[in-house]
Nucleic acid binder design. Sequence first.
DNA 1: TCCCTGTCATTGGTATGCAAACAAAAATTT
DNA 2: AAATTTTTGTTTGCATACCAATGACAGGGA
Lengths: 153, 153
Amino acid sequence: MAGAERPAPAAGYRLDDQVGFLMRQANQRHLAIFARMIPEFTPTQFAALAKLAELGSVSQNDLGRQTAMDSATMKGVIDRLARRGLVATRPDPSDLRRLLIALTEEGRAAYEAQVDAAHAITAETLMPLSPAERGQFLGLLERMIMARQGGAK
Amino acid sequence: MAGAERPAPAAGYRLDDQVGFLMRQANQRHLAIFARMIPEFTPTQFAALAKLAELGSVSQNDLGRQTAMDSATMKGVIDRLARRGLVATRPDPSDLRRLLIALTEEGRAAYEAQVDAAHAITAETLMPLSPAERGQFLGLLERMIMARQGGAK
DNA sequence: TCCCTGTCATTGGTATGCAAACAAAAATTT
DNA sequence: AAATTTTTGTTTGCATACCAATGACAGGGA
């Protein structure tokens, strides 16, 4: 029956118009750029290194909060970096539950060697947008994220 | 000026200002909303169902293209849906390489049962933005993705 | 001192994604 | 037309990320 168009809202679901689908693709493109520009680290690994470089020594869990990863994910990331000798772990003497993480010399060097590339990744990711749009885009993303960490405050 | 601002690109890497980091978090929030509203499917699974409902019977590879997944990922998604009896696979008689995928009755029913929720997911994800901003945001995302599929039409 | 509640780290299971291997079809050459 | 090359499709193996559940420790009362 080729006739009988139905206005049912159910019928009007177009995958290509959904935010989630678009965000996934934008993210895929970014991941591809990242992998090409910094093959030695994943975005999450680099995020961990960057925060460690900024904060010094922090607990695994705390680092997870700072980099938007849950503890389990953080553990995996740290394990892989530790295996490569880029971070060192030691128990917190004042709290036996905590595991303190810090960059090694090698880790800091490896991080700093990639900072320029990291800036280039951001630039290339935003390339399709005009300078004004880039600011807009970042602002909109921030607004969306705020809602996540509890609109309070 | 609060003292000698430096344009040094290397020193000024702030994780929280990078697009990739923001996109990852926006995506995380969306995934959480999705998982809460449609626990029975992942976004990729639902994308596959939606495209199958729209297109009828397509090859695995083709479905991957339509849903922005590479073939390997597509296979995993299809396998899981097939195991639950939601899609059926059969070899293409005219091209022995191809595996044709189609929704089963159950699959179509399960998909349609979630379409309203899927709309709600998009709405909730965009909730933090004003109606005007939502359009902006989607437009900017599309621009970013275009660059990916080769700007060439 | 003995709970009680919350935080921290870890483990197990599931899903996505890439790169490489393999199979079949189509296009090209001889 | 047969043989060769190129393209397209599917599958396998490996790495990463995430959630849910578990066990270990800390601090605040009763």
